[in-house]
Amino acid sequence: MKPKAATERPKSFGLVAQFDTPAAIFRACEKVRDAGYLRWDAHTPFPVHGLDKAMGLKPSRLPWISLVLALGGAATGLLLQWWTSAVEYPLIISGKPYFSWPAFVPVIFELSVLGGAAGAVFGMLFLNRLPQLYHALFRVDAFAKVTDDKFFISIEAADPRYDEQKTRKLLESAGASLVTVVEA
């Protein structure tokens, strides 16, 4: 295997900038968004209203995952009961036809709820790439405050617009109280 050239390997994961108030990170997110960055994220100790818009995030795909799995659950419930009761092992139960759909509705309903709920939970984990036991940001000591009272923006070196100097300047001009390079 050919060793990669040293220049191709990213020197660092990227930059992380600390902000002191929700308002500060809100404005900073708008700046980073308007600068055209794509591979970046905001980290806050609690949900900040409207931050998704400030970041320019597209609506989540999660509802579609949930819907597809819910409909899949409903289809499974219907087909399974039709096949077992009307095709593979037909039994007359209380004088009803083999394919008595009203009797199947509770199972169809429960399986669509199960599918929808599982889609929401596991789809969320999948879209968030969780569980993730290690992340480069954990190397930054200051980042521990993200669970307390500080707000952070991380911009990855893999972003096409990333330039350590220019990106650092952008974050500082956006009001960061601290900007640190994150080791890869």
Binding site: A23, F26, V48, H49, L51
Partner: peptide, 8 residues
């Protein structure tokens, strides 16, 4: 804008 800390 975020509503934190804003009282209307």
């Amino acid at each position: 804008m975020s509503a934190h800390g804003v009282t209307r």
